[in-house]
């Protein structure tokens, strides 16, 4: 018995490491190319800016990853994120609540909207793709009606102070928060009962149900978690911009949210997550985005590069897999 699990684990570890090693090589190589072309790429100023946007990309990736774990997907995370953004702005500016309480309530809204998604999926039995596609429009529609698409600019100075604060003169606190979330998620999926139940529900719902895993509860929980994480990503943008803007998130988060996990080797089929992989995938997204910016290539071509990288990555994984004989 012990032998079997050990073999299973080492096989999994091999599987987990190889694509990530490839990703790391690509990231380092790209950083090298960008630095050669434009030495300012690794200036403290640019590294700080990259760290701030990396934090957002990482958390968006996690928000998608936790739902992918159960074999579902969440197309509404951008809409949930912007709902949290606008609520936090309303609470701070109009109601004058302290920043910490406003942020907590905004995250609670994210969790509540995620719960709605999960509840609708479980109760109706309708595919998570359709439910979250519809709820994305529902959420952002409601947000636009309530805010009239007007930004909230008069936030307390603490907010932008957090955004421009530099730990050790280089690192944004948002990046530290993202790293902390990575550790928490790693522990959650590897050691906690709820985390393992989520993976079981995603891997094989029938078998999971038969062995007493509350599959429906796991799905709802994964969507709540996804909603809270989308809220975290939204608040990171609030802190960076120093205002609550209704054009944050929305459809713009869709591609990056899948890029991180899929580049990192998380399958759409469910039952498997890779926190480090998602982290590296998000890092690649940030490196490319910032590189194109520094080289002055312009944001218009960004989408093309991100799409090509996603395509190249899934193809590499697919054909790498033929040689490595992936299980399943």
């Amino acid at each position: 018995m012990g032998l079997v699990t050990d073999a299973g684990r080492s096989a999994r570890q091999r599987r987990e490491i190889s694509p990530q090693f490839g990703l790391m090589v690509i990231i380092v190589a790209l950083c090298g190319v960008f630095t050669l072309k434009q030495p300012g790429y690794i200036s403290p100023f640019n590294l700080f800016a990259m760290g701030r946007s990396l934090a957002v990309d990482v958390v968006i990736g996690f928000s998608q990853m936790v739902v992918l774990a159960t074999g579902g997907m969440n197309l509404s995370l951008g809409s949930i994120g912007v709902c949290s953004v606008m609520l936090s702005g309303y609470l701070m500016q109009t109601l004058g609540l302290p920043v910490s309480i406003a942020f907590l309530l905004a995250l609670a809204l994210g969790g509540a909207l995620g719960w709605l998604n999960g509840f609708a999926i479980v109760k109706s039995g309708v595919n998570s793709f359709v439910v979250t596609l519809a709820s994305a429009n529902l959420f952002s529609g409601a947000m636009l009606v309530l805010t009239r698409a007007l930004p909230i600019n008069g936030l307390p100075p603490t907010v932008s102070a957090i955004g421009s604060y530099k730990v050790f003169g280089l690192v944004s606190p948002t990046l530290l928060a993202a790293t902390m979330l990575a550790v928490l998620l790693f522990v959650f999926f590897r050691y906690s009962v709820s985390g393992k139940e989520m993976l079981a529900a995603g891997g094989n719902p029938r078998a999971a149900t038969m062995s007493g895993v509350p599959v429906n509860r796991s799905i709802i929980l994964s969507h709540m978690l996804s909603g809270v994480l989308a809220g975290v990503a939204g608040l990171m943008v609030v802190v960076r911009v120093g205002a609550a803007i209704p054009s944050v998130g929305g459809g713009d988060w869709l591609l990056p949210s899948f890029l991180g996990p899929v580049l990192g080797g998380v399958a759409l089929a469910g039952g498997f997550v890779s926190v480090t992989g998602t982290l590296l995938g998000a890092m690649l997204v940030t490196v490319i985005r910032s590189g194109l910016l520094v080289l002055d290539i312009g944001n218009f071509w960004l989408q093309l590069f991100l799409g090509l990288f996603l395509l190249a990555a899934v193809l590499a994984q697919r054909y790498g897999g033929v040689f490595r004989r992936r299980p399943r």
Binding site: M73, L255, L304, L311, V314
Partner: peptide, 27 residues
């Protein structure tokens, strides 16, 4: 040819199509 889910493939190609569109027209 690849057997990769059409969701991921078209998410990627869609981004490539939009990228070419925006890159060529500068919006």
């Amino acid at each position: 040819a690849t057997g990769i889910s059409s969701f991921i493939v078209t998410l990627a190609t869609g981004s490539v199509f939009t990228g070419i569109n925006l890159g060529l027209t500068q919006s």
